[in-house]
Design a protein around this nucleic acid. Structure first.
Lengths: 202, 202
DNA sequence: GTCTATACCTAGATAGAC
DNA sequence: GTCTATCTAGGTATAGAC
């Protein structure tokens, strides 16, 4: 029975693979890298997993599950819908590290294998569903312009975060990420204070 | 002197490398791949370039220059500032293919070598400068809420596009990209129609 | 400039001992 | 379960002929 601070080899391999995938992506991560980080040998890895792809699958599911749980905590909380969306945008992050889930979409080997891509599709899909729900709450409460398409705004909000990582990595400067977030918040603020009956009914 | 339709080996190598980098990224692109696409041998490639990194450098500069020129045409045109920003957002793209420049930020080998990263930094930086300029024009013309920080909104707009690619690739569906764009356009539309004197001067 | 041959290393995986 | 040895293919680069 595995203990928290003395995990068995299988668990160490999954966590090492997750860490390497986050840092380097799939193509640039080799089984040897993972074994070194996990302090496990070849035999151990190939005993627990059929190969690189299967270990990556477990690691991606882990990364996706962890992020999904964090987002559930952040977004399904109590409080006004708009506050939840803004809190998501302003969540503490390490911009230069990139999104542990979104960054894998750059890897053709990941995108091309349904088993590897599915956790990514799910997590980013659930994120957008949560955001859209919070935005709908905001509209219900009269906090947000009711003419807006919640699903579209949710996609925009998720995209700003994913794209913010891209800009920050391109400039090697976290400020680029924060700029993009700031702009998104200010646009939402305007959509929030706009009178709901700005447009005539016909 | 090279002709357009019978380019020399060097040119074919650069274009093949650019194509492979766009499709697969740096780590997953091998010299052999490039040679096959370029219909060039080992000797040819190593005659023209010192190695994979140098060829990639030429290819990334090519990709970045081409995109930069396209964006200059699209964004430095005549016309109202806000129209130019919306035209940029609605530019025709292949969402599943990803951004030829932005996608390279996922590659640690690219981000980690200044010579490979510089064209990416430049092109995305110039994009944001152009967007900020168009937004400032819009503010000058009274088309856009003057309380907005143009640089921040420019970063947001650029991020929505980059992130839209991520979402589309995650879902393997171009609709995800278009949703994110649609939301951004509708937020800008609200910021556009908001009266400029909504906030009292003091 | 381009070709072929060669070299060395790593990726990825298997086999069998313990 | 983990270890070591081994294997094949491919990545990356060099050498020298043409």
């Amino acid at each position: 029975m595995p203990r928290a601070n003395d995990r068995d080899g299988r668990e160490r391999l999954i966590e090492a693979a997750a860490q390497e995938l986050w840092a380097n992506g799939y193509a640039a991560t080799s089984p040897a890298d993972i074994q070194r980080v996990a302090r496990a040998g070849q035999g151990s890895m190939y005993h627990h997993f059929a190969g690189k792809a299967e270990l990556a699958r477990a690691a991606i599911e882990r990364l996706a599950r962890d992020l999904d749980q964090e987002l559930a905590t952040a977004l399904d909380s109590e409080g006004p819908g708009l506050d939840r969306v803004l809190a998501y945008l302003e969540r503490e992050r390490d911009p230069l590290r990139g999104c542990r889930v979104g960054r894998l979409t750059a890897d053709p080997d990941v995108i091309g294998q349904d088993l590897l891509r599915a956790p990514i599709t799910d997590t980013l899909g659930r994120l957008q569903t949560r955001l859209a729900g919070a935005l709908a709450d905001a509209q219900q409460a009269g906090e947000l312009d009711p003419s807006l398409d919640c699903a579209a705004i949710a996609a925009t909000v998720a995209a700003v975060v994913q794209g913010g990582y891209v800009l920050a990595r391109a400039e090697q400067d976290p400020a680029a990420f924060h700029q993009a977030i700031k702009g998104a918040c200010s646009l939402l603020a305007i959509a929030a204070v706009t009178p709901t009956n700005r447009r005539p009914k016909r």
